[in-house]
Design a protein around this nucleic acid. Sequence first.
DNA 1: CTGAAAGCGCTTACAG
DNA 2: CTGAAAGCGCTTACAG
Lengths: 354, 354
Amino acid sequence: MASVTIYDVAARAEVSIKTVSRVMNNEPNVRPMMREKVLEAAQALGYSPNLSARSLAGSKSFVIAVFVDAALTIDHWRSERGADYLSRIQLGATLQCRDAGYHLLVELIDHEAPQIRQEVGALLAALKPDGVILTPPSSDNAIVLELLNKAGTPYVRLGPEEPDGPGPRVHMDNFAAARDVTEHLAALGHKRIGFVVGEPRHGASQARRAGYLAAMEARGLSVEEAWIRQGDFTFQSGHDAAKALLALPDRPTAIFASNDDMALGVLAAAAEAGVLVPGEVSVAGFDDSPSARFSRPQLTTVRQPVVEMAELATRMLIKGQVKGGAAGAMAEPIDELLPFELIHRASTAPPPVG
Amino acid sequence: MASVTIYDVAARAEVSIKTVSRVMNNEPNVRPMMREKVLEAAQALGYSPNLSARSLAGSKSFVIAVFVDAALTIDHWRSERGADYLSRIQLGATLQCRDAGYHLLVELIDHEAPQIRQEVGALLAALKPDGVILTPPSSDNAIVLELLNKAGTPYVRLGPEEPDGPGPRVHMDNFAAARDVTEHLAALGHKRIGFVVGEPRHGASQARRAGYLAAMEARGLSVEEAWIRQGDFTFQSGHDAAKALLALPDRPTAIFASNDDMALGVLAAAAEAGVLVPGEVSVAGFDDSPSARFSRPQLTTVRQPVVEMAELATRMLIKGQVKGGAAGAMAEPIDELLPFELIHRASTAPPPVG
DNA sequence: CTGAAAGCGCTTACAG
DNA sequence: CTGAAAGCGCTTACAG
């Protein structure tokens, strides 16, 4: 079927294509009557400007790309957390794109591949997106950031591991959130609080651990080395950590696992050991993943503003608030910190008396 | 930064742009030596053909779009199932796109909106994707299908509710899968098997229920009306259904919930009622969602080949195996049925003796 | 306020 | 096997 073009609309409205263009782009300097005629013709013909043509002729592509790690997605497509985090980001981004007449392109990036430079370079050259949303580990990938800067493509780093790095970023305060969870446990009366650390390569893991330690210190609570167990953000690692913690002679009365998958593992280990939650041990997680509500008891956890982060990043990109290339480097640094939320559910309670 | 164009490459390689075009598109009729020169120049310059220009000049856009329901995504972005199903589809599609140099565009469609016709029409006109992957409920939306046919855009219906409808489709056999689950329970020795029906508007709900009934009949097992409870695919509905089933005077020894969320609700209700799973009652689900492995006990369920379905659909679209518009209507009907897998886990066992 | 011309970076159809 | 010309459907820069 031959498509309807700007010429068809112009002919029907008896104006030049330039006027049609003005109307379609909401540009000024069109008499209301002309606008009416054009709109009418466009409507009647079912006209919608061709994106490729607009993109080729103009300076905007109406495309926002989101970079997602290929290995992470593939490895964890079965894992609750991975999929959920990324789909929330995509939801936020798509929502904002749709409202603004933009389109969201999902690009799988192989961050470990030797040819990443070429791959990403080709992507940017071929697509010329108006903006790129970087999800971890893209948010911290030096090559990706360099190519983006070189191409002059605006981007936003979502939840970067190194919040001090360069470039615009939207994230939340992992340190403060972990501190608040620990505070919450301490306020319930817990003094022996165990902690399960996340995957060590994730910056968030260190921030959360530091938040835990800071709260313990602020409360004047001592921390035994045995109370801190290394995990890797998986259910299994939480399970193993809890098994060890619960076997301690003077075991903790609360365990704070620094993500929900691990907290679920803690719950499972407790059930197997016949330890009541929260009667004998309180358990807290981090993420507010869907399964945090499907578990028994439901998990006390931290809700990350993931959808909101993606929405904000997308809006900033669409509105042109983020400058690319050299202009971006000159501009005022952008650093948006979004509020988290502590979700109190049934897995935390005061410690057993005696 | 001024981009590298086909002219730059042609100049450097000392050939015409047409030759560069031939090389970039792997067309025949280029002497190896010329090809070498062009490749070298392209490499040196970091050239990658501009997608918009290719799309505008040629007949291909190198874009595959996936249609996703807006309301469903928003309502269920917190729900395990919704997000997981869709992110698996996206994973499969993105994977195949990347391998073929295609790009995946995610479009949120508001299927309830009165202006859906205009919205989708505009989308197709603006994007001119080489193919569209339809996820439920797009797979069965008459307006979407009509517009796609009118635009001549090839599409694949993923897991359509009405498997008998027109157009190419990729799906799995819900009837056979539900039958197999029921068979599995019957083979374990269960005779009183309860069933929790899914959201009635989903075609899959009816197919699964029919599979359950067929297996019961084939086994010569009677089905009491009280054993079949209406659910809506949510945890809560599974919980409520199980509460009623477990309160029955001669309660079922097995409960087959037709998705995992509901099965998780059944598990929770059993735990609250002090009924052991699988000791006193067996529980089976459907979907193999991530939480099916995080539950205690882990769920016996059906693994849907969602990633595979998306991969197949995307490949068919990219390879041009699916024809659009009138050509599609003339072509041989495409109906790909992918195999499911019954996953035996700890939630099902023989019924209690006596 | 409106429009005629040029051009974005490619592919198509054709010529040699 | 190679290339010169035309054109895809828009926007930009400019003229009036």
